[in-house]
Nucleic acid binder design. Structure first.
Lengths: 339, 339
DNA sequence: CCCGATTCTGAAAGCGCTATCAAGACCCCG
DNA sequence: CGGGGTCTTGATAGCGCTTTCAGAATCGGG
């Protein structure tokens, strides 16, 4: 058996081995046209004997179709990002697609182009952009117009195919919940926003307005939990704060820790709620009241939407998911001595 | 300006526009051979005017070289996995490579082949396997022999290029630290192991043996923090437990929470240490004593190693990283009334 | 038993690029 | 001023597959 370890088998080898023509092998590969059962059997046998694996590069070149999609994101490691990507990958894998990951760290044009060009020159069927942060937003604008693209984010927008997680409504519900507990107002610690104002902040503001509560300028946190801790220290020094809505659970945990550092108890002295339902949120002491965000689900739907676009189906559709409020132990009625 | 929105420009279009031959354009693209400055300028102008972006598919087909690597992992979302992948992507992007992600959920051969074949038929330069769990190990065995491959894991092995994070030593140090605090022995809660015995368990056992301490059968946790909490409940009921070494920080947080649920304090009643230095470990109350694992660094080195292999350089090398012990507040001398 | 309709199959032509090779241009030195 | 380099360039031939397109084979109905 010569050629065992030599170069990988090509479609020509398979055709020769099976005693058929190259196009016939191609036909059984793609399933595009009918092939008689006996030839099909011969071809399949040859394929497995030769351990033939079609070259995606050649395939793409000839067919002008690809089974790869690119995911462009400003981050990959934090909870929301990682889960979203997991959802995309899962849905993609289920239908034989592979996903490429490209991280865009900066919104600067040149850096962006450099980071994206390697990926965009790959043969990809479409792009999914995680529009969670400024680099994501910038990346979205630089995707070539001829490529199908789906944006994933927390806020709806026009003229673009997207899957969204309705942050605004979730934030509004959560804030209203806090207000319902009797807090005069709710302070907000926001995570780095993707635009002038993210959905979480909008929802929070909206709930406050509806209730006629005072809207206090939000604190700005980074993605690092320790930035939340520092803000917790600030908040501890301000006796007017009785309830805090944090942009995500990790920041909320930092805030709680910062409050504890200063001898304040949650929820007895200050109520704190998070966002996302991070796996550790329920482990935290006190268990964090938060709102669940189905990132993986958004990722899956985003892929499904992209698949539709790739197949030339309608694309202006978008799917929104209803968030679920998780009432746990970190929020309670306000303490009389604060605020 | 016709063809503005029509099909993307090809190298032929560029050549025509610049008034040179196709190979000349190719030469400025690849930088493989010298081109006179004036022709180079012409070509570059044509490229940017036409917004030409070379087709990676055609390139791969003609040159038999690819700028894409595949990362195969059993997971993508948990801390260690996500960080490792982040490191790989970072190093890859720095030199113009793109990374493809493939998740292998099961170690079952058929499922594995199905999940991997989509990726392996892509034109990839090499593969990085996260050998953290059984699916990862199984995947490693099914990578075609002709493809450069690097394994990433916590334990060294022979005959394979790999980047490792020396878990065994780290676990040994951490266990020895606990023993040094005066604990008679240290209990272990292990995360799903990648083989008969993972490095963390080995290091723990080794430290115990060296100290002549009793080796108690480990508790088995899943990757879910809540499994740690359940184990915390078990541990609370066993008064002989005074120190617990958890396979990772997330499990440790679960264990601490489980202990708290039963009215036990950490570290006053029981000492608990984690592993990895998860971003929330220092936020936790008490701040978790743990050992830092530079997953991203391992990912970067893994990529560098793979790049060497791809370039035909020696590959048996492997880089190991020295873990760093982080002593915080979750471990203390044993309480006299327990154990 | 003939003819058009239906399957199935193979020859040939690319897909967009790189690799090879040989030809032309230019240089230097004896 | 001729011979042997060194550079730069273009013609040509694929890379491994899919896609026409047309021919061969089979079938059914009148």
């Amino acid at each position: 058996m010569p050629g065992q370890t030599s170069r990988p088998a090509t479609i020509t080898d398979v055709a020769a081995r099976a005693g058929v023509s190259v196009p016939t092998v191609s036909r059984v590969l793609t399933g595009a046209a009918r092939v008689s059962p006996d030839k099909r059997r011969l071809v399949e046998a040859a394929i497995s004997e030769l351990r033939f694996r079609p070259s995606a590069a050649a395939r793409v070149l000839a067919s002008r179709r690809s089974q790869v999609i690119a995911v462009i994101a400003g981050e990959t490691s934090r909870y929301g990002y990682a889960e979203t990507i997991r959802g995309v990958e899962e849905a993609a894998r289920a239908v034989g697609y592979t996903v490429m990951i490209t991280v865009v760290e900066s919104a600067d044009q040149d850096e962006l182009d450099r980071a994206m060009s390697a990926t965009l020159s790959q043969p990809i069927a479409g792009v999914i952009v995680l529009k969670f942060d400024p680099p994501g937003v910038a990346a979205l604008h630089r995707v070539p117009a001829d490529l199908p693209v789906v944006a994933l984010s927390g806020v709806r927008e026009k003229n673009i195919a997207q899957a969204v997680l309705d942050e605004t409504r979730a934030a509004e519900e959560l804030t209203a919940f806090l207000l319902g507990l009797g807090h005069a107002t709710v302070h907000h610690v926001r995570v780095p926003p993707s635009r002038r104002e993210d959905g979480r902040t909008t929802g929070w503001r909206r709930a406050l307005r509806k209730a006629g509560a005072e809207v206090i300028t939000p604190y700005d946190a980074t993605w690092e939990p320790r930035s939340g801790r520092a803000i917790g220290h600030e908040i501890a020094a301000d006796a007017s704060v009785s309830a805090v809505f944090c942009g995500n659970d990790e920041i909320a945990m930092g805030v709680v820790r910062g409050l504890n550092d200063q001898g304040l108890r949650v929820p007895e002295d200050v109520s704190v709620v998070g966002f996302d339902n991070h796996p550790l949120a329920e482990m935290w002491s006190p268990a964090l009241t938060t709102v669940e965000q189905d990132f993986a689900g958004m990722g899956r739907r985003g892929f499904d939407l992209l698949a539709q676009l790739v197949n030339g189906e309608d694309g202006r559709t978008f799917s929104s998911e209803r968030p679920r409020l998780l009432v746990r132990d970190s929020a309670a009625a306000p303490a009389p001595q604060r605020g």
